[in-house]
Simulated scan of single mutants.
Amino acid sequence: MPAHDPHAPTASLRTTSPLGPMLLAATEDGLAGVWFVGQRHGPLRHTWPEDARHPVLHEAASQLAAYFASRLRDFDLPLDTRRGTDFQRSVWQALRAIPRGQTLSYAALGRAIGRPEAARAVGAAVGRNPWSIVVPCHRVTGSDGSLTGYAGGLDRKTALLRLEGALH
């Protein structure tokens, strides 16, 4: 993201998780992203200054740790949702409505946003979700319930769904 971009993150934080290192980024408006380091569609390089004391990043790291320890069911973080198209933002909002321990197909997600014919576009928007785990894109499956497409990798998707009780 160019330095002159008014939506560019202003701070970052690297944190650890049971599924690998993660990069968190924030703007003055909220959490701008949560990615597994090296995941598909994540930032390749960034110049965002590290700031472990940034309140949003500190809280995000704390909530992620509680989530992985099964002490947190739902994230409560301010998200900077200015990035993405209107369609992507509608998909990302719908992802937040999928309850922990449940999954939803791409087609059902398309129906939920009033775009039943848009399963492929929904899949593309899910894949570009910048808030891995916090906005639970890992809860979306193929129409037959199969585990498909996760920018962080299918091993991580499987582990997240097991942690949430959606897989046994």
Rank of each mutant, 00 (worst) to 15 (best):
G84W: 01
P78C: 02
S62R: 15
Y67H: 06
G84E: 02
R71V: 06
Y67A: 01
S70A: 14
T85Y: 07
P78D: 06
L77H: 05
F68R: 05
Y67D: 00
D80S: 10
L77S: 07
D74W: 09
Q88N: 12
S90C: 08
A60R: 02
R71P: 01
L64E: 00
Q63Y: 07
R82D: 13
T81P: 03
D76H: 14
F75A: 00
T81L: 11
D86G: 15
G84P: 02
D74P: 03
Q63F: 06
R82F: 09
F87A: 09
A61R: 01
T81I: 10
A66W: 10
T85D: 05
Y67G: 01
P78Q: 02
Y67F: 11
S90W: 00
A61E: 00
D74I: 08
T81M: 13
L79F: 04
L79E: 03
D76I: 04
D76G: 13
S90L: 05
A66F: 07
S62H: 14
Q88L: 05
G84N: 06
A69D: 15
T81F: 03
L64Q: 00
F68S: 10
A60T: 15
F68K: 07
R73K: 11
R71I: 03
D76W: 03
R71A: 12
S62Y: 12
F87S: 09
F87R: 08
